[in-house]
């Protein structure tokens, strides 16, 4: 069926690097989340590619469904923290988190 395992993983590497670059370079919290999403998307593609290669697609699908559910929770919690932080500090700069006191 699909025998381009190494090509798939080549593109997965590139997608992962794009997300990593976004997280490294950007100072906006929202962009950091977008980078995280891109990285998690590349991991998802890696899981399904390996699942197809080893013939255990059902297991890969179950893992992906788990991953998507957890991703939604992470994004919802993170974005609500972002909006709350914006209301307090009036900025989405990641270094504004430095001002928080316990």
């Amino acid at each position: 069926m699909i025998n381009s395992f190494s090509t798939d993983w080549y593109f997965i590497t590139l997608i992962f690097f794009a997300g990593l670059y976004c997280m490294l370079v950007s100072r906006s919290l929202l962009r950091q989340f977008i980078g995280l999403e891109i990285m998690s998307k590349s991991c998802l593609l890696g899981v399904i590619s390996v699942g197809a290669k080893t013939g255990s697609l059902a297991l890969a699908q179950a893992l992906i469904i788990t991953m998507i559910v957890i991703e939604v929770v992470v994004v919802a919690a993170g974005l609500s923290l972002l909006v709350k932080n914006y209301r307090i500090t009036n900025s989405t700069d990641i270094w504004s988190l430095d001002n928080l006191r316990g």
Partner: peptide, 24 residues
């Protein structure tokens, strides 16, 4: 879908392309 994993694809399309985009 191309990997013949339709359930995961539907989850991805509805949740990641739909819900997460709305959240963002």
């Amino acid at each position: 879908f191309d990997f013949q994993a339709p359930w995961a694809a539907v989850f991805e399309l509805s949740v990641c392309a739909g819900l997460i985009t709305v959240l963002f």
